[in-house]
């Protein structure tokens, strides 16, 4: 068995005095898609920020392909193949589509190749290459954001709330793309509030509540318990 692509051990993080992560353990095996679910405020986004190097944890370790990256800078992680698509619209609104794509070449793939991949997957982006990203619809912006995941052939893809503020149909389309990326063998950690949608494409699922991972397992098992976690227990 090879080393897992991501291994998070007993990770803690805090905002000032407020502890947000209280010892998170999580593993993403090579080539697997793991969905991380949980209610708002469970610490999911903070976990993503820690893994991607945006936030320094207060304790614990993060191993990326066996290397401890707890203190690595986000730009260095991005250059060695960690692709993070953060919460919200993760494009530059005042740059054109083409310029957004150009910046994706920092991950090590030539710009021309990025253009080709993006326009092949999403022909709609080719039509709008000179348009400012901020003037496109939310779905189109997420397509643009996903182009980075597609083009850069990352070792690990971190997706944070891809669906935020998007119509269900568009969310489904985006997750089709995620499934396609997964087929190419990319390992993915995917944070999502729409449990069913995310579980459709994942091999494993983990549930986070109150700064800890409280359950892991097969998608089906986890789904059954999810509506309670998110919609509240029997009142």
């Amino acid at each position: 068995m090879s080393v897992p692509i991501l291994e998070v051990c007993d990770l803690t993080a805090a905002y000032g005095r407020i502890e947000v992560l209280r010892g998170v353990d999580l593993t993403v095996p090579r080539g697997a898609v793991v969905a991380l679910l949980g209610p708002n405020g469970a610490g999911k986004s903070t976990l993503v920020q820690c893994i991607s190097g945006q936030k320094e944890p207060t304790g614990g370790d993060i191993h990326l392909a066996g290397v401890n990256v707890r203190r690595a800078a986000p730009e260095d992680l991005a250059r060695v193949g960690l692709c993070t698509v953060p919460e919200g619209r993760s494009v530059f609104p005042n740059l054109t589509v083409e310029e957004n794509l150009q910046l994706m070449s920092y991950a090590g793939v030539p710009a021309a190749a990025v253009f080709e991949t993006a326009y092949t997957y999403f022909p709609r982006l080719a039509e709008r290459r000179k348009q400012l990203a901020g003037t496109m619809s939310g779905g189109e912006q997420q397509m643009l954001a996903m182009s980075r995941a597609l083009a850069s052939d990352p070792a690990l893809l971190l997706l944070d709330e891809l669906s935020m503020g998007l119509a269900p149909l568009i969310v489904e389309e985006l997750y089709d793309t995620v499934a396609r990326i997964a087929e190419t063998g990319v390992s993915i950690l995917c944070i999502e509030q729409f449990a069913r949608t995310a579980l459709r494409v994942s091999d494993y699922a983990a549930v986070m509540v109150g700064g800890r991972v409280v359950a892991t397992g097969e998608p089906d098992e986890v789904l059954e318990s999810m509506s309670d976690v998110i919609l509240g227990g029997a009142a």
Binding site: P168, E172, E192, Q193, T197, A198, L199, R200, S227, L231
Partner: peptide, 14 residues
């Protein structure tokens, strides 16, 4: 709580 549209909005379609 029992509205299917709410279920979908929160949990997504399957």
């Amino acid at each position: 709580r029992s509205d299917p549209r709410v279920q979908q909005a929160y949990l997504g379609y399957s």
